[in-house]
């Protein structure tokens, strides 16, 4: 499968948020403002690309030859946690404003299921190294797309006349559902 198809597949057709329902917590939690959402999306993209690469290497060069694939959950979490730490240090050094605006969310990427999920999917789909890198990057961009669309809609919703019973979490979940329906239009175009 060509790399472009893999990229489009994971970014749009098999979008992590809309199709796999992964990474819902930051998708609902950090999508109040577009700039925050974009920052979160970029952080996830960065961590996901790094993690996908690293977990592929660890999985295929260490775990598979040693016949220890059953430990991949623990090993992957170890890798992801380390990557998040690395990104956090990097941001604190070079992008202080972004680091401050993330606050608690950056460490929370460690427990973001979108990242572990993608790493496990890459292994499940049997991608080679380049495919894994592209899938990680595409998955991150797909997440960024999803969270930015959501944030844009929620910014507009602030001003909208929402029925009282649906204010807050209610209307957000309704919006998320309708967005997912829209993305269903892509389904089946790529495996």
């Amino acid at each position: 499968m060509s790399l472009i198809v893999i990229f489009l597949s994971i970014a749009l057709v098999n979008n992590l948020v809309f199709m796999k329902f992964l990474g819902i917590c930051p998708y609902l939690g950090v999508s109040k403002k577009t700039d925050m959402a974009f920052g979160m999306g970029l952080a996830v993209t960065f961590v996901l690309t790094l993690s996908a690469t690293m977990t592929w290497i660890i999985n295929n060069l260490v775990l598979v030859p040693l016949n220890l694939e059953f430990t991949k959950y623990i090993a992957f979490i170890l890798v992801i946690a380390s990557m998040v730490q690395l990104v956090e240090m990097y941001l604190r050094k070079f992008y202080k404003a972004l680091y401050q605006s993330f606050g608690i969310f950056l460490p929370l990427i460690t427990t973001n299921c979108a990242i572990l999920g993608t790493c496990l999917f890459i292994d499940l789909w049997g991608y080679n190294f380049m495919e894994a890198v592209v899938a990680g990057f595409g998955g991150g961009l797909g997440f960024t797309l999803a969270i930015c669309i959501m944030a844009g809609i929620r910014e507009q919703l602030e001003l909208a006349d929402v029925p009282r019973a649906l204010e807050g979490a209610g209307i957000t979940l309704v919006t998320a559902g309708i967005l997912t329906l829209a993305f269903m239009g892509f389904s089946g175009m790529v495996r």
Binding site: V62, L68, L78, V79, S82, M89, Y90
Partner: peptide
Amino acid sequence: ISTPLTLLVIGLVFTIMLTIAHHRLQV
């Protein structure tokens, strides 16, 4: 034997990496 050993080695590698990063990227 091999399972904890492998995970330990992976953990150690990342520990060393993070320690270096911590010193390099200290604010």
